[in-house]
Design a binder for these strands. Structure first.
Length: 558
RNA sequence: GUCCCCGUAGUUAAAUGGAUAUAACCGCCCCCUCCUAAGGGGCAAUUACAGGUUCGAUUCCUGUCGAGGACACCA
C-alpha cells in the first residue's frame, strides 16, 4: 500500500481529476474536502456535486454519480456513498488508517510539519512593550499567542523571524527618566511635587537605587552601567531603559519566549530612515501643510481623516517611525509580516498601511497583516484585579508565572480565540482538577510514558508492530485523530489561530483517555501488545509535538 | 457620534458556508482486586433579535439591541 500522509489533499487531488473529466468547463471550482461531524457520514465528505448543480443544471445526485464513476482508483478509499442533498461520503480503509502509526513513529518530532510556507521569509512582531515597566498580563497574552503562532508557522514551513520593537526615545521614556530622576533625589509619589503623569510603581525606586549604586545591567539587546549622577538625564534614560529591558527579558525567559531580533525606534532616527521616509512621502504628493504641521492624506487610502506627520513643535508623530520601520521590514525581504498586538492599537493599522501605500514601492495593500488580541482581565478570589502601570497596582506576567506556573499560564493565554475577551481566573489556572485542561492533556502524555516504561522495551522497535491488529472502536478513533494532526497545523497557520492546536490536543487526549479506560496494553499476546504500544507511542509523539507548539512541557510523570 | 471586536447550554468556551451545533465545568447516576480516578461511561441544556444572499447561514451582508476597546499635533 502506498503511504499517504495527508489524506485530505490526496482525496482532493482525486476529485480534481474527476472534475476535469465530468465538468471540464468548471475545472476551476474550488474542491472542498471536509471531515463530517458524524461518523456515519464517513471519514471525509465532498460537496462538489452540490456546487456543480446550478452551473450544470443537473441534480446533485446525478452529478455525484458521475464524479464517483470518474474518480481514479485509490487503495486508501474503502467505501463511497452519496448521502443527503448530494454529499459524497468516503470511508478510508482500515489499513490506510493503521499505517499512520508507522508514519508518526518514522517522522517523530517532524510529524505534522508541512510545506505551506515553502521556506519563505516571514516575520512575526509581538510583545513590543516599551521599556517603561514590567510586562503585564496583556503582554503575556501577546507573548503566548505570538510565540505559538511562530511555532505553528514554522511547522507549516515558513522561515520565521521573531521580532520585538520598542520605543526607547519618546515622551513616555522622558517620563520614565524623570520619574527615576526624582526617585534618585529622594522624591516619592506621595510628595506633592510628583508629576501627574509620572510612574508611581515601586520598581521605579529599584531602578533609581541601582543607578545610584552604579550597577551594570545586561539585557538581551543592550547593557549599561549606572553613572550615579542624578543630574545626568542621558545616563539615567539609558540606564532605565537597559534596566527595564532586562526585567522584561527575565519575564520572557520565565515564559519560554525568545526573540531573534530587537529593533529600536531610536535606531530608525539614527540611521536616517525616518527622515528618508518623510522625504519620500512628501515626494509622493500625498502630504500637505496646514496649521504649522505636516499632514499625510491617509484618507487617500481608506482612513476616515488625515493624520499629522510632523507636529507644529517639529517632532514626528509616532506613526512616522512606524512607517519607516515597516518599510525597513519590507526591504529586509519578508514575504509576510504579521504584527501581534493588543486590540487597543487597532487604529494604527490603517495609518501604517496608508503610509506604505503612499510610498508606492510595490507593497501589497494588506501588508503587514495583524493579529489583534482582546483585553485580558484577571480574576483572583472571584474579584477583578485592576491593572494600572502608573498607579503601580499591578498584575505582572512574572507574578502570574510564579503563582500559576509557565505551562498553565501559556495554555490559558493561548487557548482562546484572540478575538474574544479573556478572563484569566488565577484560581482556576492553579487548580489541579478536572476544570484544568492543561493537566488533562499532560496527564495523557504521562500515562503513556508510564506504560511504555513498565513495558521496558525499545520504543523504536515498535515501528515493526503489526498495526493491522488495531481495529477496535477506540483504536480507530485514536488513529483518526493522529491522521488529523497535519490538517490542524494547516488550519491554524492559515487562520493565524494557534488556539486550534490547544483544542485539538484536548480532543486527542480525550480519545486516548477513553481508549486507556476501555483496554489494557500490556497483554500476554506479543503481537497485540506491540500493536497497542505502537499506537499509544505514536499518540504520545503527537501530543509532544503539539504541546511543543504551545510551548508547554510534556511530562513523563505527574 | 465614528471605527474595531464580541454576543452560542446555568457558566467558560469550540465549530475552513454543510448533514442531527461540539466540549468542559456545575447538577444527578454509575465505574478502581487494574498500566496514575489529574481518568472513564451515562442523563439534562444553547446559536441575542429582524431582514437578506445561498441548494444550505453560528459562519457572509444590512439593520436593531447589548458588552468591551479605540477615537490627540500621546505610544
Amino acid at each position: 500500500m502506498s503511504v499517504v500522509l495527508n489524506f485530505k489533499s490526496h482525496i482532493s487531488e482525486l476529485f480534481s481529476l474527476a472534475l476535469r473529466q465530468v465538468a471540464p468547463d468548471h475545472a476551476d471550482v474550488a474542491i472542498l474536502i471536509e471531515r463530517p461531524k458524524l461518523a456515519s457520514h464517513g471519514d471525509y465528505a465532498c460537496n462538489l456535486a452540490m456546487q456543480l448543480a446550478k452551473p450544470l443544471r443537473k441534480s446533485p445526485r446525478e452529478i455525484a454519480q458521475a464524479l464517483i464513476a470518474a474518480l481514479p482508483k485509490s487503495d486508501v478509499i474503502g467505501k463511497i456513498e452519496i448521502a443527503g442533498a448530494g454529499f459524497i461520503n468516503l470511508v478510508l480503509t482500515e489499513a490506510a488508517k493503521q499505517q499512520i502509526v508507522h508514519a508518526v513513529l518514522h517522522a517523530g518530532a517532524g510529524y505534522g510539519h508541512i510545506h505551506l510556507g515553502m521556506g519563505r521569509k516571514l516575520q512575526v512582531e509581538f510583545v513590543s512593550a516599551n521599556p517603561t515597566g514590567p510586562l503585564h498580563v496583556g503582554h503575556g497574552r501577546g507573548a503566548a499567542v505570538g510565540d505559538c503562532l511562530c511555532n505553528v508557522l514554522h511547522a507549516a514551513g515558513w522561515n520565521v523571524t521573531r521580532e520585538f520593537y520598542y520605543n526607547d526615545a519618546g515622551v513616555q521614556i522622558d517620563n520614565l527618566m524623570r520619574s527615576v530622576q526624582l526617585r534618585c533625589k529622594g522624591i516619592t509619589p506621595q510628595d506633592s511635587s510628583w508629576p501627574e503623569d509620572g510612574y508611581r510603581g515601586d520598581y521605579i525606586a529599584d531602578v533609581a537605587r541601582a543607578y545610584m549604586d552604579r550597577e551594570t545591567v545586561e539585557a538581551d539587546d543592550q547593557h549599561f552601567t549606572g553613572e550615579g549622577d542624578p543630574d545626568d538625564e542621558g545616563a539615567i534614560r539609558r540606564f532605565a531603559v537597559a534596566y527595564l529591558r532586562r526585567e522584561q527579558d527575565l519575564d520572557l525567559r520565565a515564559f519560554n519566549v525568545e526573540f531573534d531580533v530587537f529593533s529600536l525606534e531610536s535606531q530608525l532616527y539614527r540611521d536616517g530612515h525616518v527622515e528618508n521616509v518623510v522625504q519620500q512621502l512628501i515626494a509622493s504628493g500625498h502630504t500637505y501643510e496646514q496649521d504649522n504641521a505636516l499632514w499625510l492624506r491617509t484618507t487617500d487610502f481608506g482612513d476616515d481623516k488625515d493624520r499629522v506627520m510632523k507636529k507644529s513643535d517639529g517632532g514626528y508623530t509616532y506613526f512616522v517611525p512606524d512607517v519607516a520601520y515597516h518599510l525597513e521590514k519590507w526591504k529586509r525581504g519578508f514575504v509576510r509580516v504579521i504584527n501581534e498586538q493588543g486590540a487597543d492599537h487597532h487604529s494604527t493599522i490603517t495609518r501604517v498601511r496608508a503610509g506604505l501605500q503612499a510610498l508606492n514601492v510595490g507593497i501589497p495593500k494588506g501588508w503587514p497583516e495583524y493579529v489583534l488580541h482582546q483585553m485580558v482581565t484577571v480574576l483572583k478570589n472571584g474579584e477583578e484585579v485592576k491593572i494600572s502601570k502608573r498607579a503601580g497596582s499591578y498584575v505582572t506576567l512574572r507574578d502570574l508565572i510564579d503563582e500559576v506556573g509557565c505551562d498553565a499560564t501559556r495554555y490559558f493565554l493561548a487557548a482562546r480565540h484572540p478575538d474574544s475577551q479573556l478572563i484569566f481566573d488565577i484560581d482556576l489556572a492553579k487548580s489541579k482538577s478536572n476544570d484544568n485542561p492543561v493537566y488533562y492533556i499532560q496527564y495523557a502524555h504521562a500515562r503513556i510514558s508510564t506504560v511504555l516504561e513498565i513495558w521496558g522495551g525499545e520504543r523504536l522497535s515498535l515501528i515493526n508492530a503489526d498495526v493491522s491488529l488495531l481495529n477496535g472502536e477506540y483504536e480507530i478513533a485514536l488513529l483518526q485523530h493522529l491522521i488529523d494532526y497535519p490538517q490542524v497545523i494547516e488550519n491554524a497557520a492559515m487562520d493565524l489561530a494557534p488556539h486550534h492546536v490547544a483544542f485539538y490536543l484536548k480532543e486527542l487526549a480525550a480519545a486516548f483517555h477513553s481508549y486507556y479506560n476501555a483496554s489494557r496494553f500490556l497483554v500476554d499476546d506479543e503481537a497485540t501488545k506491540c500493536a497497542r504500544l505502537a499506537l499509544i507511542a505514536a499518540a504520545a509523539q503527537v501530543m509532544k509535538n503539539g504541546l511543543a507548539l504551545l510551548g508547554i512541557s510534556a511530562p513523563e510523570k505527574m
